[in-house]
Computed example of a mutant assay.
Amino acid sequence: MTTPSILVLGAGELGMAVLQELAAQTITNTTRIAVLLRPSRLQSEAADALRALGIDVLPGDLQHDSQSTLAKIFAPFTTVICCTGFAAGPGTQRKLARAAIEGGVQRYVPWQFGVDYDVIGRGSPQDSFDEQLDVRDLLRGQHGTQWLIISTGMFTSFLFEPSFGVVDLAHNTVHALGSWDTAVTVTTPEDIGRLTARIVLTEPAITNQVVFTAGDTLTYGQLADTVDEALGTTLIREPWPVPTLLADLAKNPEDNLQKYRAVFAQGNGVAWDPAVTFNAQQQIAVTDVKSWIRQHLTAPATNR
Rank of each mutant, 00 (worst) to 15 (best):
V289D: 07
G269M: 08
L235R: 09
P241R: 02
D288F: 00
E238H: 10
D255G: 06
A271L: 13
V289R: 09
Q295K: 15
A262P: 01
Y260V: 15
E254F: 04
I236A: 11
N268W: 01
L249M: 07
L246A: 10
V289K: 02
L257T: 10
P253H: 11
A275T: 08
V263S: 00
F278H: 07
D248A: 15
V289W: 11
W240N: 05
S291T: 15
P253L: 14
K259R: 15
Q282I: 02
W292P: 08
Q282A: 08
A250R: 11
V289G: 08
A275E: 12
T244G: 00
P239Y: 08
N279F: 02
P239D: 11
S291H: 11
D288M: 05
T233E: 01
N252Y: 12
Q295M: 09
D255H: 08
W272K: 02
A280E: 14
A271I: 03
E238P: 12
K290N: 09
E238T: 10
Y260I: 06
A285P: 07
L235G: 00
P243C: 01
F264P: 04
Q258I: 14
W272L: 04
S291I: 13
Q258D: 13
Q283H: 13
T287Q: 12
K251A: 12
A265D: 00
